[in-house]
Design a protein around this nucleic acid. Structure first.
Lengths: 200, 200
DNA sequence: CAATATACGGAACGTGCGTTCCGCTTGTCA
DNA sequence: TGACAAGCGGAACGCACGTTCCGTATATTG
């Protein structure tokens, strides 16, 4: 299901199956500009940034923006899905090592740093599904699954206490990210990570 | 300074020094209704709740609401200041006991539970000053000072690790509150509290 | 029971933002 | 190079929300 829908979101309105025709050169260029501008804008100012500002930042009219993305949410989705995909990739890289505990804690630390300067990612994680019945839910579930894997391995290795589950870890992660925006990542991550270790 | 200003906020626009005249009976009644309705509305839906809804909930027209509070922010302030005052009182109660560590951790747990069903409190804590140069900043500073006292005593008693400061604790608290909204308070508080204890 | 200041309700206004529409421009292809 | 689909810009629309205004109602006072 996702491929088709993803394609639709990525290629513009009106084509659900395949690229009927390649985009015109300027259109392709503008599309990329919009994506870049939106990524930066969302990261800096969060979901609340007005669409006019994104368009201006991309050096494009709002009409053009809407030609490429049918809705503000669709644009946001394109970007946040990409961000989360990046996280998924990182999880894969980390989970192939020998040190399960190290992998888990490294991921936690990296994610907090990432969220610190990506307001959008934080807000997205904060929205516990149930609102948008679409892609994001599915991608978020994949992230949860991946983190769950990391967590279980770390628990099996005795590096993380056994009485926490994925949902708690995700929420905690979100909380630390929110907190880190104000106090900087360093100190807080240490505290939470220590809390996640088994009590001796 | 606060008494005068507080009085102004509490008694309506136009009187900065003293109550020129007692409120009419119906006005006093409505004022209380508005405060109650707003407290409930802000707690349930957060700062974003439309003012019309608060008025409706209070069984009052918007005009009446604005007669009592010059602005939405003023109304919010009246309520959140009150909430934080409650927290301050609780800190005082707790800090007179013998068990400094217990006091600190009890406060943390209670505050998270409180914030779990008071969306407004959470949002307010999330706003790191710098926006509203007025009362809230001062009240928040008092809260920070009080928590700082609790923290220092707990650290002196060896119940809390020495390498965290008040700001970090406040941010952490805010993060846990945000997380607790989604996962429930119990598990998360335990993890964070353990993280705050000294490593053996 | 007047007379009057006080308070009330809710329509109306201004603003900001997402989205749509449409006349003009430009890349593409024969 | 000319014709035409594809794409562009930005004015205009609709909506939600905070705030203001003013005609009406009512508590208070003598």
């Amino acid at each position: 299901m996702t491929p088709a829908t993803t394609r639709a979101t990525a290629a513009g309105p009106g084509e659900l199956v395949g690229p009927a025709r390649p985009l015109r050169a300027d259109a392709r260029r503008n599309r990329q500009r919009i994506l870049d501008a939106a990524a930066a804008a969302f990261a800096e100012e969060g979901l609340a940034v007005p669409i006019d500002r994104i368009a201006a930042r991309a050096g494009v009219g709002v009409g053009t923006l809407y030609r490429h993305f049918p809705t503000k949410d669709a644009l946001f989705e394109a970007i946040v899905v990409d961000r989360i995909d990046g996280l998924l990739g990182r999880v894969d890289e980390l989970s192939h090592g020998a040190d399960a505990g190290g992998a888990f804690f490294t991921f936690v630390a990296e994610m907090v740093v990432l969220a610190t300067d990506h307001k959008d990612l934080l807000e997205e994680l904060g929205r516990r599904q149930a609102d948008a019945p679409g892609l994001k839910v599915e991608v978020k579930a994949r992230l949860e699954a991946a983190v769950g894997r990391l967590l279980r391995e770390a628990q099996a290795a005795g590096a993380v206490r056994g009485d926490v589950d994925v949902v708690e870890v995700m929420c905690l992660l979100m909380g630390v990210c929110a907190a880190a925006v104000h106090a900087g990542p360093t100190g807080l991550v240490r505290v939470v990570c220590d809390g996640l270790r088994p009590r001796q």
